[in-house]
Write a protein that binds this DNA or RNA. Structure first.
Lengths: 216, 216
DNA sequence: CCGCATCCCCAAAGATACTG
DNA sequence: CAGTATCTTTGGGGATGCGG
């Protein structure tokens, strides 16, 4: 565990709890997928050494963010899950994700979007009970439904609206509120209302093209 | 600069930009105090080596979060300031600060609250135009005024309300919405309205007492 | 196989000194 | 003042081992 910043400051203290490398990505996984086993976490977090993951899980547990639990006998295995307190990082990661998305840009060519990404993306983009409406998304190969704040895989029976397009169009919709790149059947106002729950960027319209995306 | 997480994910990308040690604290300082010189940053960030600070500033500059600028001739010196994009980290740090505050707990005994902390605390707690009202805070030795979203040092002439108490009471007010530990003169509803702009914690009532606060 | 602990190597962090 | 240069220490990254 790294040294504490040792300042009486909410931000510094929060970073003492979840500011280390990989910590917030562990939280992200647990937020998106619920309780996970050690190995599931390990394979999802590519590049994170097994010792590091173990260390981070210990730290997060000590910090009251994550909790270990034994699954009931049928398939007894230990899983990691967020505590109540850890769950409240959702709005933080929500904000952070929207901030990051603006300079990340849309997926270049269906990058390595893993199967099931849409469900996680919706959960991250629209936390909690963003809307009462039932909206179905058909994005690329993926289909998911946002129903009264809950996200389900697969389509809906009586959706208020159906949003269709590719991943880049979905990106533009969520990040730039650009309606023109997706096709919307059904209640357009329902979709508009949903997007109005997103964090309103105070000013600056477009991403600053931060890096040449020089991957390691 | 640390290795990129190298994932197509808004959170991972955001952490590539500001996830390294000290980075978000640099942003915090610039958010609270506006443009700062290198030395000012260095002395405010106790424990951050000069080489590290230089490195972080380079990274943040490359990431489009921070910008260098030469002050006009009278007192020509170079300062660091947030870009438009960097400024939009305010809601992120706002969320993170409120999350962290819940497990940080109130200042034990007027800890090392540096002079002027109240201004920064108000700016961090109530970002942007939280309220139209003008509310004066007299907390411990400090006095500051929140006026239509702007924070000024010193009191107001015609405040809608005056909030008075010690630092711990201020903490309880902002984190727990506990009105009983401070005294409020003037428009109580104005204060209540202000607190209603804070992030509503979904459930869990109280902090989980995460650590024995074993400082390094 | 799952859940780590150990080992090794190297890249950052931390501290100090020094320079344009 | 605004950093760079240098040195030591610590932690990350990758592989492997090992008990349950």
């Amino acid at each position: 565990m790294a040294k504490s910043y040792d300042q009486y400051c909410p931000v510094a203290h929060a970073l003492d709890l979840v500011g280390e490398r990989w910590s917030l990505l562990v939280v992200r996984e647990l937020l998106e997928h619920g309780p996970l086993r050690y190995s599931d976490l390990h394979c999802r977090l590519d590049g994170c050494g097994t010792n590091i993951l173990a260390s981070r899980l210990r730290d997060l547990e000590r910090g009251g963010v994550v909790r270990r639990r034994q699954l009931p006998p049928p398939a007894a295995s230990t899983v990691y899950e967020l505590t109540e307190y850890g769950n409240e990082l959702r709005p933080v990661l929500h904000q952070l994700a929207h901030w990051g998305a603006r300079s990340l840009g849309p997926p270049s060519s269906e990058d390595e979007l893993q199967p099931g990404w849409l469900v996680g993306a919706l959960r991250m983009a629209f936390p909690a009970q963003a809307t009462e409406a039932c909206i179905e998304f058909r994005i690329g190969e993926e289909t998911a439904t946002l129903d009264a704040g809950d996200v389900r895989e697969e389509g809906a029976e009586q959706p208020d609206a159906v949003v269709e397009g590719d991943a880049a169009a979905f990106f533009r919709l969520v990040v730039d509120r650009d309606f023109d790149t997706v096709s919307i059947r059904g209640s357009k106002p329902a979709v508009r209302a949903l997007l109005d729950t997103l964090p309103p960027w105070t000013a600056a319209p477009l991403p600053p093209v931060p890096e040449p995306v020089a991957a390691s």
